[in-house]
């Protein structure tokens, strides 16, 4: 039981990490970015390549992956979202163009890395097993949880206290007014994508480190859960996404524990569906979208 709670927390922290980048873009720009899963996957492959080819240690690998993700995010914004801005169907078209961008990115990964999953070098990250109060946890799980918490806290600080964060909140409130007040909306938009995609890429590399390998389907496997997490947390709410990620992780683990693992795949969606029907703003909907 306690073991299952721990399992749920670790699984949930990955969900949350995937979802905060997702929800950041939605909260500030109202874009549902369906290329996020592809960037997540790209981050995983990039991490592996950096480790294999350049022998980059873990502490240097993650920042490098974040930088690669950020660059991808800017490219994504330039090619798939900026050309649509101002159009009647901007949000809907953005949905489709981000699907297209995601498809292109996955195809590029396919061309570069082939069909088979890629692995981190053996012994790249020492995986020790600890037993704490009867609960078995691995070092990777601890690192994942710590990194996820650190990134989320950092992001929350950035959005609430930094000049960039203030500009982001202004754009979220009203892009037109923000522009009048001298905020460079184009820069903030690009910055938001860079931040979101950087986080997504790190999340991908982290999951790959957990699994020891990455395939092209890595992002797709978590994308649907990601939807559930961001809605459950209230679209655009960072803290909501974190909490919802953990809630879903726990719900899945407990379903396996109490019920039957055949229903594990159903839990996230059943919870999501119920929440949408009963409380469309999400469980943490009182955290207003604009406060991000």
């Amino acid at each position: 039981m306690v073991q299952q709670l721990a399992n749920g927390v670790f699984a949930g922290s990955i969900y949350a990490l995937f979802a905060i980048g997702f929800t950041l873009v939605f909260g500030i720009l109202r874009h549902l970015n369906l290329a996020h899963a592809a960037i997540f996957t790209a981050g995983a492959f990039a991490g592996i390549e950096l480790a294999v080819r350049f022998d980059l240690p873990v502490w240097a690998m993650f920042p490098a992956v974040a930088a690669i993700g950020a660059v991808l995010g800017v490219v994504l914004e330039r090619t798939a979202f900026r050309p649509l801005s101002g159009r009647d169907d901007e949000h809907f078209a953005g949905l489709i163009s981000s699907i297209a961008f995601g498809g292109v990115l996955i195809a590029v990964l396919h061309a570069r890395y082939g069909t088979e999953p890629k692995s981190f070098p053996q012994e790249y990250f020492p995986n020790r097993l600890y037993e704490i109060a009867g609960v078995r946890v691995t070092l990777t799980q601890i690192v994942t949880l710590a990194l996820a918490l650190a990134l989320m806290l950092g992001l929350a600080w950035l959005v609430s206290s930094s000049p960039m964060g203030r500009a982001m909140r202004a754009v979220a409130e009203n892009p037109g007014a923000a522009r009048v007040l001298g905020v460079n909306v184009g820069l903030v938009t690009a910055g938001t994508y860079a931040l979101s995609s950087g986080l997504g890429a790190v999340a991908g590399a982290l999951l790959a480190l957990n699994l020891g390998q990455a395939g092209r389907g890595l992002g797709a496997s978590i994308e649907l859960i990601g939807f559930a997490v961001i809605i459950l947390g209230g679209l655009g709410s960072l803290w909501g996404a974190m909490a919802a990620g953990l809630v879903l992780g726990l719900a899945e683990a407990l379903t396996v524990h109490w019920l039957d693992s055949t229903w594990k795949g159903m839990v996230a969606f059943a919870v999501l569906f119920a929440v949408l029907v009963l409380r469309p703003r999400g469980l943490f909907g009182h955290v207003k979208v604009r406060e991000v």
Partner: peptide, 20 residues
Amino acid sequence: EESFETGDTDFSAQLSKVQQ
């Protein structure tokens, strides 16, 4: 007897049951 789905990445919940 536990199951999972193609594409799953985390099996710890099922494995914990095995371990018990």
